[in-house]
Design a binder for these strands. Structure first.
Lengths: 336, 336
DNA sequence: GTCACGCTTGCAAGCGTGTGCAAAGACTGC
DNA sequence: GCAGTCTTTGCACACGCTTGCAAGCGTGAC
């Protein structure tokens, strides 16, 4: 196959009998071009199979139309759902997404951002890792906009989208108390992500305020297997908790499976379980997990509309959005 | 923030006291540049925070380093796992991935490919939709390489990676027969994807050859809910099948949940169930599903190494790879 | 001393586009 | 018919980079 079949605006101009500028203007919304020439150009372009070269356009406009999505654990139910939502919203806004995975090394987020800069990305959305100050500034210094989701960074510049984890978690404590549970527990991973810690804090404080006995356990990576381990640790205690709030639905699924199949407990009869995220599996018949739904569409909406707004607007807007999770009552907690 | 903080090779050259070419060559592997100048350039580049502009580089080299991933149902466990694997492999190969979602309209794959062409993508990998001939050719005509995964297109040009669905499915028929089942069923979605149909075909043929009674049911979108509906349809028949092969793990999860919680059946005691894909949930305690694992790493490996090989090599190579799924025995089928 | 050779380096010509500027043309109102 | 206004168009430069070409330089062999 020929490696240089590329037809440029010059070719189209020649065929349509106009100047190259006319071609350029035809494909530039809002440019001044006569309807007749426009049509001639479009016809010639179609016949030749012409496509505007966005690399060159990006070079001129100093705006590539590229938005980087920097993500780890992309195959996880919650992350993949958020990823999908963001991708669709960005596409609808005429942006194109560049996906960067940061599962591997420690500096992988830095590497990713450097890559983003090389491609002149207009913006980056970070769903992973703890971007430290230097990295964030590297990004801003190169003229990118930055969105941090559930990252709780306190520097000015990036848009910060956060869930009201703490308040939501306190509502679960109340629900446990109403279900008649005295000994409750929080099952967390050992990732110590800001949002995970906020959930732990919110739940513990509220439970203690209600006079409940609360124990906290942390273990491993935020996934199904860790949930099973946490179940072993918590359910073999002298005083077994009657209700457990898992920091994540994935943890909750592992926890429930271990509780049922290895400890023979009935849920919610002998044990109440709640989770966070409302991943698809939370609604499956085997779990029917009471949990908090993250309004993914709202999150994506907020991120994209900020990215696409005019510079002067974003300079004025409050660079922080707080989103309320929605409690989904199913059958893993008594009452409701 | 300044929107034009971009430092170009010219600036670096000036600071290092060399020509622009020297800077360019410093960042071009294999170019002729004296160690001493190289070092001076690197120092200056670091001080100024210089990054090569890949848009401009792509413009000159006629090779952008961009690979498009065109995908639908990206939030599905199987798809997101494959997506992750591909992304990581591509990154390791020095490529950058552009993600395009095609959940929406009918022509969305066409739109996606057009977008890919505009950004001069070196290649596209299609995990979704039925790309018809015109679209495929559009892609090749513009000098892109194309990889089709589980798409079974028969034109020359693209690399086709397929699973040996038919042969694998026949092994499940045998397993059911050995488990002592006489009436078996195949639960499929109504998507009629080539690979889904191949599984149906392989299973049916093999089951009939073994003298089993086989019924096929198809319904809806390939997801959990469809699995539940399929269970209702198949388990309310006069002669209830003793074993069901679901075209997909997601279908199988829905099927198992309905079979257990709505029909009170024990698995594998009263009903054998098998699936395909080996999604993470298949290994969860609640399912323990016997299924076929897709060697995702091998798939990604094959795709990426073909994409990165020299043109003359790919012209000679057989543009088709057949991959053997691996049977994972768990507890949803008797025997094993 | 000379010549050939190899390694570096600067020059300049592109790559495909957007856009300011000025000129040309069309049209209106008088 | 003419001045004034508005629309359309082409020219030419800029964007940041790569790379062929030829010149410069140092080295070693004869």
């Amino acid at each position: 196959m020929a490696s240089k079949p590329s037809v440029s605006a010059h070719d189209v101009a020649e065929r349509a009998g106009v100047s190259r500028s006319a071609v350029s203007r035809t494909f530039t919304p809002g440019a001044s071009v006569a309807p007749e020439t426009r049509e001639r150009v479009l016809k010639a372009a179609d016949e030749l199979g012409y496509h505007v070269n966005h690399l060159a356009r990006g070079l001129m406009r100093r705006e590539s139309g590229i938005v980087c999505l920097i993500v780890s654990d992309a195959a996880t139910p919650y992350r993949s759902a958020l990823l999908r939502e963001l991708t669709i919203h960005l596409q609808n806004a005429g942006k194109v997404v560049m996906l960067i995975n940061t599962d591997r090394s420690d500096d992988s987020v830095g590497q990713a951002l450097r890559q983003a800069i090389r491609y002149q990305a207009d913006a980056s959305i970070i769903l992973s890792g703890l971007p430290d100050k230097s990295i964030t500034q590297l990004c801003l210094k190169n003229g990118q906009r930055l969105v941090l989701i559930n990252r709780d960074d306190d520097q000015p510049g990036p848009l910060k989208i956060n869930l009201n984890d703490e308040e939501a978690s306190s509502r679960i404590a109340l629900a446990f108390e109403r279900a008649g549970c005295r000994h409750v527990a929080f099952a967390n991973s050992d990732a110590r992500t800001p949002s995970l810690m906020a959930r732990e804090r919110g739940f513990s404080k509220a439970a203690e305020a209600l006079g409940l006995e609360v124990t906290v356990e942390r273990y491993g990576w935020t996934g199904y297997e860790a949930g099973k381990v946490l179940a072993h640790r918590l359910l073999t205690r002298k005083i077994r908790p009657e209700a457990v709030f898992c920091a994540t639905d994935l943890l909750a699924c592992g926890f429930m499976d271990a509780a049922r199949h290895e400890f023979g407990l009935s849920i919610p009869g002998q044990l109440c379980v709640a989770g966070f995220d409302d991943i698809e599996q939370a609604g499956w018949e085997s779990y029917q997990l009471t949990t908090f739904a993250q309004p993914l569409a709202s999150i994506a909406e907020a991120a994209v509309s900020w990215l696409c707004s005019a510079p002067e607007e974003t300079a004025m807007s409050v660079p922080s959005v707080l989103i309320e999770p929605q409690l989904i009552w199913r059958k893993s907690v008594r009452g409701g």
